[in-house]
Design a protein around this nucleic acid. Sequence first.
DNA 1: CAGCATCCTTGTCGATACTG
DNA 2: CAGTATCGACAAGGATGCTG
Lengths: 129, 129
Amino acid sequence: MPAMPNWNAYAAQCPTRVVLDRIADKWTVLILGLLGQQPRRFNALLREIEGLSQKMLSQTLKRLERDGLVRRTVFATTPVTVEYALTPLGETLAESLATLIRWAEDNIEAVQAAQRMFDAKTGADARPA
Amino acid sequence: MPAMPNWNAYAAQCPTRVVLDRIADKWTVLILGLLGQQPRRFNALLREIEGLSQKMLSQTLKRLERDGLVRRTVFATTPVTVEYALTPLGETLAESLATLIRWAEDNIEAVQAAQRMFDAKTGADARPA
DNA sequence: CAGCATCCTTGTCGATACTG
DNA sequence: CAGTATCGACAAGGATGCTG
């Protein structure tokens, strides 16, 4: 990859795919959505995101930290307190992701209607799990 | 879910999760990105998205069609021609997703830099596959 | 050209138990 | 509180071969 490249997510080996892989993750979207409001502690995130296991939270946070999207701060209280917050870079992404969450909330009914139509026409359950 | 609900993606059973599940898919983002430019045929998509298998393309397109985001049109040529295009609903989502692709292209270098920093500090390979 | 059906390998993810 | 470690079930997804 040259110095001033045309990054192209459609090329298999293009590094922009790593960003898509990060975004293309339900938990990432939800976590960054919350951190976009305000910093949170580990267990706060765990409580606020239903269905999220502690393993996935831990794993996802570590990846987000590695990608420079989230900053992890440890406070030497007893017991120890850890706060997660967006980095400036993370904030720019969180804004775009917030748009997606809003889109979902605004258009879920249209999507559900389309699904009912489709299922009725195909007569059967082409429905995924 | 009531008639005028506060859809909340943070609730496990909230239907907005289905939209997130759709978005939370690398191929969805890339496919809708292309269809946002112009309609394409099946094999055109297959060729333009490197690393995408025919199985995943087929599967993803069917889901997108079911969700009312993509319209599938069959032309009775021989051999048969099939065109995929965004629905009006799909276009509104594709715009948001295009933002993400642009974000990835604009910020990939910052992300990579953060990764190098992180890997250097942790001394080792916390890197995922 | 535009797919579907099958096999089979890999990875994802939840559950559980334990640590500083 | 904030995690790590391990196991096992499940499903995603690639490869291959076949169809209208």
